[in-house]
Amino acid sequence: MIDPATFAAGLPKAELHLHIEGSLEPELMFALAKRNGVAIPFASVEEVRAAYEFSNLQDFLDIYYRGADVLRTERDFTDLATAYFNRAAADTVRHAEIFFDPQTHTDRGVPMAAVIEGLLAAMAQAEAAHGLTSRLILCFLRHLDEEAAFATLTAAGPWLDRIAAVGLDSSEVGNPPEKFARVFARAGDMGLRRVAHAGEEGPPAYVAQALDTLRIDRLDHGNRAMEDPLLVARLARSGMALTVCPLSNLKLCVVDRIDAHPIRAMLRAGLRATINSDDPAYFGGYVNDNFRAIAPQLTRDDLIALARNSFLGSFLDDAAVADHLAGLDAYAAAHA
């Protein structure tokens, strides 16, 4: 009989919570630093990995932004995303919806075109090489102001037909969703879907704000919603997808230990939870590593539900979702 971790690893799945800058492995960081003549404060790959010890979200973000400084050209962004897609394909990811943070780069003088065109090139290559489809989600940095978010949305104008959604990430505490109400309303009027990080370190009230004020289509993280039974019931009743990231939660001390992660409770409460890797280079694992980490506390049906939820929670059209669900059912039947 196939063990749960191996079964989970082979499941066809979508990844809905992946920061492409967070897939920058130390080896690629060093290669890009050399190629672009960028000085980095690490002497070796081992020294970088040793620095990946965080006690909270802000500690992580400090090193995350430092690492992103090596990304300078369109080729850099293509190489970055190609490395991720190759890993994702090996993890039987069939579709990925990836976050990118343009403000992290444009504020350093990197043209918006270099960022987006580089990512689009990698996306096309991944579909041709692996049959792996993907969508872009433009994220606003919440520690900056709404005016900067509006400027970013305007600058992305030429590519909006190739961007599926806007998102909200970076430092959550002290930067509530309501701070970005107007720019999210504008994005919605432009036909973009809306997602937001809420309830990772921020309180349940931030989740409610994301729902009511930003009018999100999908909730990123959402762990702390579990503290509010009425909010849990609302999320379950609406079928709102949650993009949950177990290893990230462990690394950033959102949970004390992996067997205390609320993923099982989320499924039992009827939430449309999914499993994702967040910033895999920094948090110690890609999507299958996350599945392996939580597999011991879940049933086979739970694992299938998580994969099913990933397609149902995606921004794919109904026909594509139906095709992926049929593939998932075929895999499950073949490994009964």
Results as ranks from 00 to 15, higher is better:
Asp91Val: 05
Asp91Ile: 05
Asp91Lys: 03
Thr92Tyr: 10
Val93Thr: 08
Val93Met: 07
Val93His: 09
Val93Trp: 03
Arg94Ser: 10
Arg94Phe: 06
His95Lys: 04
His95Ile: 11
His95Ala: 04
Ala96Tyr: 04
Ala96Arg: 06
Ala96Val: 13
Ala96Ile: 03
Glu97Arg: 02
Ile98Phe: 12
Ile98Leu: 15
Phe99Lys: 02
Phe99Trp: 10
Phe100Met: 06
Asp101Lys: 00
Asp101Ile: 00
Asp101His: 11
Pro102Leu: 10
Pro102Ser: 06
Pro102Cys: 09
Gln103Lys: 11
Gln103Leu: 14
Thr104Arg: 09
Thr104Ile: 13
Thr104Phe: 12
His105Ile: 12
His105Lys: 09
Thr106Asn: 11
Thr106Pro: 08
Thr106Val: 15
Thr106Met: 11
Asp107Tyr: 10
Asp107Phe: 11
Arg108Trp: 07
Arg108Val: 10
Gly109Arg: 14
Gly109Leu: 12
Gly109Ala: 13
Gly109Phe: 13
Gly109Ile: 10
Val110Lys: 06
Pro111Leu: 07
Pro111Glu: 04
Pro111Gly: 06
Ala113Lys: 12
Ala113Gln: 13
Ala113Trp: 01
Ala113Tyr: 01
Ala114Phe: 08
Ala114Leu: 01
Ala114Gln: 00
Val115Thr: 09
Val115Cys: 06
Val115Leu: 12
Val115Trp: 02
Ile116Val: 15
Ile116Asp: 04
Ile116Glu: 04
Ile116Lys: 05
Glu117Tyr: 00
Gly118His: 08
Gly118Val: 03
Leu119Trp: 01
Leu120Ala: 11
Leu120Asn: 00
Leu120Arg: 14
Ala121Cys: 02
Ala122Trp: 08
Met123Cys: 08
Ala124Ile: 00
Ala124Arg: 15
Gln125Asn: 09
Ala126Ser: 14
Ala126Phe: 12
Ala126Gln: 05
Ala126Pro: 10
Glu127Gly: 01
Glu127Val: 02
Glu127Gln: 15
Ala128Leu: 11
Ala128Trp: 01
Ala129Asp: 14
Ala129Glu: 15
His130Leu: 07
His130Asp: 04
Leu132Asn: 09
Leu132Tyr: 08
Leu132Glu: 07
Leu132Ile: 07
